[in-house]
Design a protein around this nucleic acid. Structure first.
Length: 723
DNA sequence: GCAAGGTC
């Protein structure tokens, strides 16, 4: 229906605007530049107050409907149907109904079983998903309110999804030929009013791009998921829910690769010089800042010489007062990170709590990426309300004194087209649970801190060198908080205070302790949920609303599990990535998202059509599925081994995975090779023999799990070093 | 039942 409707709507708008021109319509577009003329058919706008008859305005969510109604009228009539609110605004020539969706009310669905499947249609969400039952009432209300209107205004958020949400409602219940679009990027009264004075024709490019994104995600996700499940079914007769998708699969791959690195890690020994100096009756540990020493012999020689010398010389001493700027108000990612750091909450838990606080009207919209507070917000009113909450009474009055009532928040660099940073509304919380309080408190304190002064910290640092070898540098530092500033309001980032006496340049400082300390190279970092979320943000996959949820999906599929606060991949997770990397490599990479974005951009520019893009994806998938199906039984076997449904005939002697070489699975085989390869380096550094090497790394905590398993069972593996 | 995307 796309292009046909597109054409007719333009015709309609054009003819409509002819009629409008006859009226004395105020128009700001008086420029006669060539550009403006070329763009005329897109730029024609309509003032809602010039429209005659019944106008249905569709907002994305009830809160937005409320704000829109209040922007359009000082006293809109609030009505309700099936418990869903909507608003009526009557004028001499028109009556405006502001109604609301609740996010997507329609979703893609197919009746067909099996794969490949490329036949799907938009259906009401409540018919597809039992968890979306609430959407039924919204659809009932919209369908009633939409009947026989003269105009429909899509006033959903001005982004791709908002364009799709409004479009589908008008498509099913209204008339696309009588439709207009309101474009606003915040829900402030001024901006809303302006957008309704400048309604445009429906944004077809956005709609088409959005519909396309839904279809692409659906055909890639559903087909590959079904292929995986079907392979297990034919190989072991078991039904299990497996899935793959543009966002979840690259995320899983990221964790799997990090995990493999950790499990194959062998630490290398290195030596550091540990020295304590004595100054003003204080014994101070100085940190060695030179190159780490790789062999014990070398380290011993150096430290003996240093001991003989008995002192270090101050090369540089600095006293500085530095300031810590207050952090900006939260976006969702920052809130999730802080709640994880301070309280150990999972991103999903934090988000769910924030959503509840939002629905209770305690905080602003939480699904935002913005770190900026809008200048239009009445900060004083919020402060006054917050001061009525016991916990914040004193803090707020402090803040008002400190700022002398000039409330100017710091602004972060991250922005969001549709929403500001998260802030408390000032509504008094009632009956909050313990964890809910923790999140609310973080938000309030972070908001207050944004207005406060910088923290001032005095910092001392001394660099000492060994006189006989100036490349050997040691350092110590101390710091003291001079002025808490914003840390009074947000005490969760307080730097630790540490004393350091004053030093003089060139001063000789006595050494009271000197020894060598054996350390080891560090293993790859542990992964936790917040790191996964930050990674998704950085590579640009998922959205504020979906990232935490998608991480949880990986857990519910049992691709990932939590072990003492950190995340590890299961055998199934490893297997899924192995299979997908081989047969559907596209979906394991974030570049699929980049590809979608490029295609959507082409649609928006009008150089490619949605149908073409979808057809390309379909052709790509069909080819991939053909090669998958050729190996389907074997793939199903592999996944079934990893699920523990069946046992491989040739099993790895160290685990339940299928053997690859030397009676080891591919991971233990890699571990074996790593053990062998790393021996030379250990021998060079430590002068150890093979057995000593094995027993040494076996004992170390950071040695990877697969490495340890290989060492523990070395006799079974029947490998002896060829020397 | 399977995606990702909105929001109650």
């Amino acid at each position: 229906m796309g292009d046909k409707a597109k054409k007719s709507i333009i015709d309609y708008i054009l003819s409509y605007s002819e009629k409008q021109k006859k009226k004395p319509v105020k128009t700001k577009e008086k420029t006669s530049s060539k550009k403006a003329i070329e763009k005329t058919e897109i730029q024609i706008t309509h003032n809602i107050w010039d429209l005659i008859g019944k106008i249905v305005v569709i907002a994305e969510k009830p809160k937005a409907a409320n704000k829109i109604a209040l922007a359009l009228s000082r006293n809109p009539i609030r009505k309700s149907m099936y418990g869903i609110p909507y608003y009526l605004i009557k004028n001499r020539h028109s009556s405006i109904i502001v109604a609301s969706a609740a996010g997507h009310l329609y979703g893609l669905h197919t009746d067909q079983y099996g794969y490949p499947v490329f036949k799907y249609e938009w259906k009401p969400l409540y018919q597809i998903d039992p968890k979306a039952k609430h959407t039924e009432k919204f659809i009932m209300v919209l369908s009633k309110l939409c009947s026989n209107a003269d105009y429909y205004v899509n006033a959903c958020d001005y982004d791709i999804e908002g364009s799709v949400i409004g479009y589908l409602i008008i498509y099913f219940h209204g008339d696309l030929e009588k439709s207009l679009r309101a474009k606003f990027s915040s829900l402030t009264i001024e901006e809303l009013r302006e957008s309704f004075r400048k309604l445009t024709s429906l944004d077809w490019e956005m709609i088409e791009a959005g519909l396309c994104r839904h279809e692409l995600d659906w055909i890639w996700g559903i087909n590959i998921s079904r292929a995986l499940m079907s392979s297990v079914k034919i190989a072991s007769g078991k039904r299990v829910i497996l899935s793959a998708g543009r966002v979840q699969t690259p995320t899983l791959r990221y964790v799997v690769e990090k995990d493999i690195e950790r499990r194959l890690f062998i630490p290398l020994p290195q030596y550091s010089l540990s020295i304590n100096i004595f100054k003003n009756n204080y014994e101070i540990h100085v940190e060695y800042k030179g190159k780490s020493v790789e062999t014990k012999k070398n380290a011993k020689e150096i430290i003996d010489e240093i001991k003989r010398t008995g002192y270090l010389i101050v090369k540089k001493y600095e006293e500085k007062i530095y300031t810590l700027n207050p952090p900006p108000a939260f976006n969702l990612g920052d809130l999730q990170e802080e709640a994880a750091r301070i309280y150990g909450f999972s991103p999903y838990k934090t988000q769910s709590i924030a959503e509840k606080l939002y629905l209770d009207a305690l905080i602003s919209y939480p699904r935002t990426n913005s770190q900026k507070l809008p200048p239009t917000l009445n900060y004083k009113a919020i402060m006054n309300k917050l001061s009525r909450i016991n916990n914040y009474k004193e803090l707020v009055s402090n803040l008002l004194v400190e700022t002398k009532g000039v409330l100017k928040p710091v602004q972060g660099s991250k922005d969001d087209p549709a929403h500001p940073a998260i802030y408390p509304t000032g509504v008094k919380p009632k009956d909050l649970g313990k964890d809910e309080w923790k999140i609310y408190d973080l938000i309030v304190r972070r908001f207050l801190a944004a207005f406060a002064s910088k923290a001032r910290i005095s910092h001392r640092i001394v660099y000492l060198e060994y006189p006989k070898d100036p490349s050997m540098v040691f350092q110590a530092s101390g710091q003291k908080i001079l002025d808490l500033g914003w840390l009074r309001y947000y005490p969760f980032s307080k730097p630790e205070e540490r004393f350091l006496p004053k030093f003089q340049y060139g001063e000789k400082v006595k050494i009271v302790k000197a020894s060598i300390r054996k350390t080891y190279t560090k293993p790859p970092e542990k992964i936790n949920k917040i790191k996964i979320l930050r990674w998704m943000e950085n590579v640009g996959i998922g959205t504020e609303a979906t990232r935490a949820r998608i991480i949880e999906i990986l857990f519910s599929r049992y691709y990932l599990r939590s072990v003492g606060g950190r995340v590890e991949a299961t055998d199934l997770g490893l297997g899924i990535i192995e299979v997908l990397m081989e047969y559907f490599p596209e979906i394991t990479s974030v570049s699929l998202t980049r590809h979608f974005e490029e295609e959507m951009e082409k649609i928006r520019l009008g150089v490619k059509r949605r149908e073409e893009v979808v057809k390309d994806a379909k052709n790509t998938l069909i080819k991939l599925i053909v090669s998958f199906d050729k190996k389907k039984y074997q793939i199903g076997k592999t996944l079934s081994y990893r699920l523990g449904y069946i046992t491989p005939i040739n099993k790895c002697i160290l685990c339940n995975r299928e053997a690859y070489k030397n009676n080891l699975c591919k991971y233990h085989y890699r571990a074996l090779n790593t053990v062998i390869k790393t021996y030379d380096e250990w021998k060079r550094r430590e002068g150890v023999d093979w057995n000593k090497y094995l027993s040494s790394i076996k004992k170390l905590k950071s040695t990877g799990k697969w490495i340890v398993e290989v060492i523990q069972n070395f006799e079974k593996i029947k490998y002896s070093p060829s020397e």
